[in-house]
Design a protein around this nucleic acid. Structure first.
Lengths: 373, 373
DNA sequence: TTGAAAGCGATACCAG
DNA sequence: CTGGTATCGCTTTCAA
């Protein structure tokens, strides 16, 4: 049994005080370079690991975290935020203060929100970088100032961000392709819609879809790709055009949340029941479409879990100064009509009673269910 | 901003000492019933929440946890144990000692293992109750002695167990049925194999499969169910018989890990390419079967996550005296040839470098991927 | 049955 | 630049 090494051990070993050791280990000002390096060396050789309990206890320096996301127009971001809140509450040391900053539309106001977070001096930021190019300089500045930034859903490369939490886009696209091929018996014309090929995530899904389709179902023909630029009417019109051009289209994979306009376009073109739809995410308007089998399957991106992971990674870094991984990639869930109700029930349960009173050992009579996305 | 209430607050309120308050709240001996109830009342009205950091700091008595599972003949339990270890290491307060007790076969030695764990005086037990009836009395005894027991993979009802972590069997069966129907175009004969209808989990999967098939694909015909009692030869022989009896069988859903004998039986009967297989779990021998498309899809039960959750629930109870939920139900993952590689890669990564050295902020050059099941 | 007090290990401040 | 020390909230003796 190895006794844990503490500050006093390493201080004693070097004949200095714990205060000095502390300052040296944290790069605080006021330590001679010599002692600092000696301390750090000794800490390493002794295998010093800080005692987090003691740390939390002594400095109850409330962590302030800014969460910058899209407004809750789509249920996706509501779920992400819910996951963040949950994790914050669950994180045993409840010294986390979360400030939500939202912006109304893609790329509109997100720079201001980021700026505001920086100005207010938060300890960390969780953000959805919808237009990375605009955020670039600000994120670099945050990184320079040692303010960790975690990206959710979309990555922002070369910004010095601490980590990114997202769905596995390659697995998503590949799964969609394999399902599409299976459903259609390995032949027919299919198409993909996405927001823009400039967005890495969408391009990856598309690439994985195309590649898997080609490898596993060589007889299937992938048609031109629709870019809707996150505009509903554009999605509708371009879909309508596509359906007109390919009256024999057999399937379509919607990689974004914007599946409703595409469904409506198919409905308008009287082609709804001839086309196999594979969509993305799960939100109220999609439920009846799945139930009526207009949508064959949807790929659920587990927004709640994304939120949880984002906060967890950020907190772990803030607490321990270390980051478990720079890229957290979630496996998507597949929702079809058969298992739809289980997902809906889960969403209900989780958003319903706020972690309905935890119960002590003896009082265990009625079970409650927690469904992990 | 509400100041946190601490022991001293409630002690002061009642004119007693913190020691008394502490003893009262923890049902320690040596407190008059009167003061005890007064303290507990006051704690409730003030909304006292213990400061865990202080708790861990003052008394870090190592938690000892026994993990009783099947030997690693199947990769499933190796993964479960890996998940448990991971979570133990990740749990910030690393005062957890885990003792693994394994038994070679279903129902063989598990009672002895449980007994040994109890005798050695562990603080909690995670177990796979393969033969609940034999464990019943022992689990009840554990419960009476306030030793929490968490079941993994399978529940043991009426045993006083603290919680159960398992896959959503209803969602699994329903998803399998919907996929089967989609793959087969809504018609044909299908069958189910399982270990025994006596086992709740298997019965539930079967029921969900049958029900979903009936509701969504009324033209499909569900044939008799194979019970293999966890014996490979039995699975092989009964499958062979089934294939002989139904030469037009179109699909089969294997709810257990025992899919290889069934596949071999189909191979022997020259029916491999005529039957759509939906299997359960993911293990080395299954990989080539998925790759060759002998298996259309497999339902992955996320053993690693099950292990993580089991330890988390148990630790939370041990640490806080509260249990977040008595039933943790995981949504299964769907693995097909298209996304197979992503799951294999994930298993490799996770079992490879032991949490390859966490890195500090500045050193973030090459990303590592962590793939959450 | 109860009170008083000594830690647990890291942090932060004040003297030197 | 460095040493000393009070502090965080809870647990756990030891006296009373």
């Amino acid at each position: 049994m190895k006794r844990k090494v503490k500050l006093l051990d390493i201080a004693h070993e070097l004949g200095v005080s714990t205060g000095t050791v502390h300052r040296a280990l944290h790069n605080h000002p006021g330590v001679s370079p010599m002692t600092k390096s000696r301390v750090q060396q000794m800490a390493k050789t002794l295998g010093y690991r800080p005692n987090l309990a003691a740390r939390y206890l002594s400095s109850r320096h409330n962590l302030r975290i800014s969460v910058n996301t899209l407004q809750g127009t789509t249920s996706f971001w509501d779920e992400v935020r819910a996951g963040i809140s949950e994790e914050a509450r669950a994180l045993v040391m409840e010294n986390i203060e979360i400030e939500y900053r939202t912006y109304p539309r893609l790329g509109e106001g997100e720079e201001e929100a980021f700026e505001a977070a920086l100005k207010s001096g938060v300890d960390g930021i969780i953000t959805f970088p919808s237009r990375p190019q605009g955020l670039l300089s600000r994120m670099r500045r945050a990184s320079r100032n040692s303010i960790p930034v975690v990206c959710v859903a979309t990555d922002a490369p070369n910004t010095g961000r601490l980590a990114v939490v997202s769905i596995d886009t390659l697995a998503s696209g590949a799964l969609a392709a394999d399902l599409m091929g299976s459903f259609l018996g390995g032949k027919g014309k299919v198409a993909v819609t996405l927001s823009s090929l400039v967005i890495t995530e969408h391009a990856e899904k598309h690439k994985a879809f195309a590649r898997t389709l080609h490898d596993l179902y060589p007889q299937m023909q992938l048609q031109e790709t629709i870019e809707d630029h996150d505009i509903e009417t554009e999605a509708y019109e371009k879909s309508t055009e596509l359906f007109k051009k390919h009256p024999d289209l057999a399937g379509i994979y919607v990689t974004t949340e914007a599946s409703i306009p595409v469904l409506n376009a198919a409905r308008g073109a009287q082609m709804l029941d001839k086309i196999t739809f594979i969509t993305t995410d799960l939100f109220p308007a999609l439920v009846p479409e799945i139930r009526s089998r207009a949508v064959a399957a949807t790929i659920y991106q587990r927004p709640r879990t994304q939120g949880r992971m984002a906060l967890r990674v950020l907190h772990e870094f803030l607490a321990e100064g270390e980051c478990p991984s720079f890229q957290v990639t979630l496996a998507p869930h597949l929702v079809m009509r058969g298992n739809l109700d289980f997902f809906l029930q889960r969403q209900l349960l989780e958003s319903g009673p706020q972690r309905a009173g935890a119960v002590r050992l003896r009082g265990a009579s009625s079970d409650m269910v927690e469904y992990f996305g």
